[in-house]
């Protein structure tokens, strides 16, 4: 069958939930960790039925057009086209920024 590691329902524990939440830059309360762990465990147990199928000769389909993608949605030349500028000639996206400074978005220090 499959020779890749398969998560057993019993291994979906709170430590894993915290680990994955961290990867997704989500902060969960202790209550959320407990609730989510239980719900995720149920959901993963449900999706595990996919392990029953023999997919050894099946290509993954990541896009509905499949192998016809070149014909149905051909790519265009990678040419940059200008986006909108506001009344001051600055990029209009800055207008909806939570905090902007000159031509940039303002954020806390990275390091």
């Amino acid at each position: 069958m499959s020779d890749v590691p398969q998560l057993k329902a019993s291994k979906v524990n709170e430590a894993l939930t915290r680990q994955v939440a961290n990867l997704a830059r989500l902060e969960l309360t202790d209550q959320e960790v407990t609730t989510f762990t239980s719900q995720l465990s149920d959901i993963l147990a449900y999706v595990d039925q996919l392990q029953k199928l023999d997919v050894s000769k099946v290509e993954p389909l990541t896009h509905p057009f499949g192998t016809s993608i070149e014909a149905l949605a051909p790519l265009r030349e990678d040419i940059v086209k200008p986006f909108m500028t506001n009344a001051e000639g600055k990029p209009k996206v800055l207008d909806s920024a939570p905090e902007a400074y000159e031509d940039g978005f303002k954020v806390p220090p990275i390091i």
Binding site: P5, L53, V55, V58, E59, P60, T62, P64
Partner: peptide, 15 residues
């Protein structure tokens, strides 16, 4: 591989 890739393979079977 066990989750995303496999799901994409079954997606192909459904199509």
């Amino acid at each position: 591989d066990a989750y995303y890739k496999r799901a994409c393979q079954v997606r192909n079977l459904i199509k």
